[in-house]
Amino acid sequence: MAPESDSTVFQLSACRELLDSHPESLRIREQVEALEEAMPDRPGVVVSFCRTIIETTCKTILTDRGVSVDSAWKAPKLVSETKKYLNLGVVDDGQLDSSLRNGVQSVVQGLDQIVGGVMEIRNAHGSAAHGTDAYAPLLESHYAEILARATDVVVGLLFKTHLRSAHHDPLSRFRYGDHSDFDEYIDSDYGPFEVLDVPLIASEALYRTDFQAYRAALVLFRQEQEATNGAGAENGEPEP
């Protein structure tokens, strides 16, 4: 008889949601899959990858925003630097909701405690941490799961907030398709083109051949959107 499929496979839901949205992010995919596969039999591997995934997430966000990352920064410092660029409390119209900002900041402060706990347990029980006696007892798997779930929360909060705020503040590095409304705006005025019977999409061609020109036009497009929305709001008109 064929073995029954395992319906209890461990997965990091927030990390998986991000991987589905960005399938080209191979480095963090490798880390997430390694952590998931290590549960529950290799808890030391799990807690080691918890720190690695947090650090990779923060470095990705900072690089997206054109921030130079010091190679000596560890997880607590990386999280601290990353939080500076999340535009907490900004709502869909680009305005700042002070009460929302204060509340979200209180939530985000808890990330520091989570990261501190991940670092402490990783240093004591991680497979990739400091060497230890080969016969030392393994960390119990339920503690590894607690850290993995906490890591998933950290990644989800940081990366989702990062991507959402990028709609109003185009990143120094982003992927083609992240600003589909802008792409449609370009493509409605230019193209389609054909070169050697190969169809070319104007927005993608600009993105691939001159990213800085694409980004400069995108920034102007966003500024004009905000100006139009602001004028409409002053006149009592609904936003598009």
Rank of each mutant, 00 (worst) to 15 (best):
E17G: 15
L19R: 05
D20A: 15
H22T: 11
H22L: 07
H22I: 11
S25Y: 11
L26N: 08
I28A: 02
I28W: 14
I28C: 06
R29L: 08
E30V: 03
Q31R: 11
Q31K: 14
L35V: 06
A38S: 15
P40E: 06
D41N: 13
G44N: 03
V45Y: 03
V45N: 07
V47T: 09
S48P: 10
F49T: 10
C50F: 12
I53A: 04
I54C: 15
I54K: 07
I54G: 04
T57S: 14
C58W: 01
K59V: 09
T63M: 02
D64K: 06
D64C: 10
R65I: 02
R65H: 09
G66P: 03
S68A: 13
V69Y: 05
D70A: 05
S71M: 01
A72G: 00
K74W: 00
A75V: 03
K77G: 00
K83L: 15
L88S: 05
V90C: 05
V90F: 02
V91F: 02
D92H: 11
G94W: 05
G94E: 07
D97G: 00
D97T: 03
S98N: 06
S99E: 13
N102W: 01
V104G: 00
V104H: 01
Q105V: 13
S106G: 13
V107T: 13
G110F: 11
L111A: 09
Q113V: 09
I114V: 15
I114W: 07
I114S: 07
G117Q: 13
G117I: 11
M119V: 15
E120Q: 12
N123C: 04
A124G: 01
G126M: 03
S127Y: 03
